Simulated scan of single mutants.
Amino acid sequence: MKLEQAAKQLEALGNPTRLKLYRLLVRTGEAGRPVGSLQETLGIAASTLSHHLHRLVLTGLVTQERQATTLICRANYPVINGLIGFLADECCADAVCASTEAEGVA
C-alpha cells in the first residue's frame, strides 16, 4: 500500500461521524446495511450521511450495492485489513537497534 493511499483512508476515518459509521458497518458484517437503517441508527440527515458515505467509498473503505430500490453499504474488509497491515508491517522493526544501543551505553 502506498503512503498517500493510507493517509487518505486514515483521514477519512479521522472524522468522528465517519468513524462511527464505519464501525457500525464493520459490526454488521458481510450482509451490509441499507442506507435508511444507517441513517436511523446514526440519527443524522440523509444529506450528511450521503456526504460521509461518499468519502468512505472514495477511499475504498466502503462498498455499495443497489438491490432494487435499496442501497446496501458494506465495510470493505480487504481494504481495511490492508490498512491495518500497512500500519503494523514494521512493528518493532527498530527494536533491535534500540536494545543494541542500550546495551552499549550500559
Rank of each mutant, 00 (worst) to 15 (best):
M1I: 11
L3T: 14
L3N: 10
E4F: 08
Q5N: 09
A6N: 06
L10E: 02
E11G: 05
E11L: 13
R18V: 04
R18Y: 03
L19H: 11
K20P: 00
L21F: 14
L21Y: 13
Y22L: 04
V26M: 15
V26D: 13
R27Q: 15
R27F: 07
T28C: 12
G29D: 09
E30K: 09
R33D: 10
P34N: 07
P34W: 01
V35T: 13
V35C: 00
S37F: 03
Q39F: 04
E40S: 11
I44R: 07
I44S: 00
I44Y: 06
I44H: 07
A45R: 01
S47Q: 13
S50N: 11
H51G: 03
H54Q: 12
L58T: 01
T59R: 03
G60F: 01
L61E: 05
T63S: 13
E65S: 14
E65L: 08
R66M: 12
A68M: 03
T69D: 12
T69E: 10
I72T: 03
C73F: 04
R74Q: 15
N76S: 07
G82C: 00
I84C: 07
F86Y: 15
L87C: 14
D89H: 01
C92L: 14
C92Q: 14
D94R: 10
D94F: 05
A95W: 12
V96W: 05
T100C: 04
T100N: 06
E101N: 07
